[in-house]
């Protein structure tokens, strides 16, 4: 009777493994063939696309831009998500539920629609520009479409909901009694944050941030729409190279670079987490 559980694991595993291996091997293989134009590729196995990637300042700049906007998005997402997560986790009233609902709804709504709202919000004659103009804070309308700030804002909208959900579960693991104890012994509110809340949350926050960073690295929709053909991140460039130029070899190379960077970040987060666990900094 005991073998039952192993048996039901086989079909899903076979399917997942086949899809995973087949799709990944095929695209990785294609990255080693030269593009001959019009979607056809060479027959010789060579590293030409990779050499091109690492020698062309355009591609390297795209890689750097992807990392830098993802990093900025991660920092700002944390700055917004952690206080919200803390607020909701420490609030067990009806209002806490309402606040949580706001986050969950925004998480589940397709990112295209949110970007759409951003377009209207920050358009040249949108109400933000009009208000800032009328009170004299700016002297000409500003835009977030087609610049790095815009891409960062778009990525934040993509990751913020997940960030709150992630950090919410981190804050929940910390008993409120620890904070109360510190307060009873005379710690100020700031000191409680510095010496109790932040150190206890740190491992979870580190792991969570790397996850958010990863999400941003792979985000296509918000980066494509807000970059508007002027700012390229790797996912946007992949789509462009494949759809517009039909260069499957180069597309595969870019995808491989993206995939490897994301996997490296995952390994790093695992390593960090294991290190912290060894030093008994994580309870879980």
């Amino acid at each position: 009777m005991k073998a039952r559980w192993e048996l039901i694991l086989i079909p899903p595993l076979l399917l997942s493994f086949m899809l995973l291996a087949a799709s990944q091997i095929i695209f990785l293989r294609s990255s080693f063939y030269r593009d001959l134009g019009y979607g056809s590729s060479g027959t010789e196995f060579e590293f030409v696309n990779y050499i091109k990637f690492f020698n062309d300042s355009f591609y390297l700049k795209v890689l750097w831009d992807t990392v830098s906007v993802s990093f900025l998005a991660m920092v700002f997402t944390l700055a917004f998500a952690f206080p919200i997560a803390y607020l909701i986790a420490r609030m067990w009233s009806k209002w806490g539920m309402v606040l949580l609902a706001g986050i969950v709804v925004s998480t589940f709504i397709a990112i295209v629609i949110k970007v759409f709202g951003l377009f209207i919000m920050f358009s040249r004659n949108g109400f933000i520009n009009q208000t800032l103009l009328s009170i004299g804070l700016i002297d000409k309308p500003f835009t977030i479409i087609g610049n790095e700030a815009g891409v960062v804002v778009g990525l934040m909208h993509f990751t913020l909901g997940f960030g709150v959900v992630l950090l919410f579960s981190v804050v929940q693991t910390i008993p409120r009694s620890l904070e109360e104890a510190a307060q009873i012994f005379g710690a100020s509110r700031w000191r409680v944050w510095y010496r109790v809340i932040i150190p206890l949350c740190l491992p979870g926050v580190v792991a969570g941030s790397l996850m958010l960073f990863n999400m941003s690295m792979g985000a296509f929709t918000s980066a494509a729409l807000l970059g508007d053909g002027r700012i390229y991140t790797l996912p946007v460039l992949i789509q462009r190279v494949v759809v517009m130029e039909a260069k499957y070899g180069m597309g595969g190379t870019l995808a491989a670079v993206l995939l490897v960077s994301v996997l490296l970040i995952n390994l790093l987060s695992l390593y960090l987490l294991l290190g912290l666990r060894r030093r008994r900094l994580v309870i879980a």
């Binding site: 799709s23 294609s30 296509f220 996912p235 992949i238 789509q239 499957y248 995808a255 993206l258």
Partner: peptide, 13 residues
């Protein structure tokens, strides 16, 4: 863990 654009490209190929 795989970026969705990579999944899309891989499945297309």
């Amino acid at each position: 863990q795989i970026p969705t654009i990579v999944t899309g490209l891989a499945f297309l190929q």
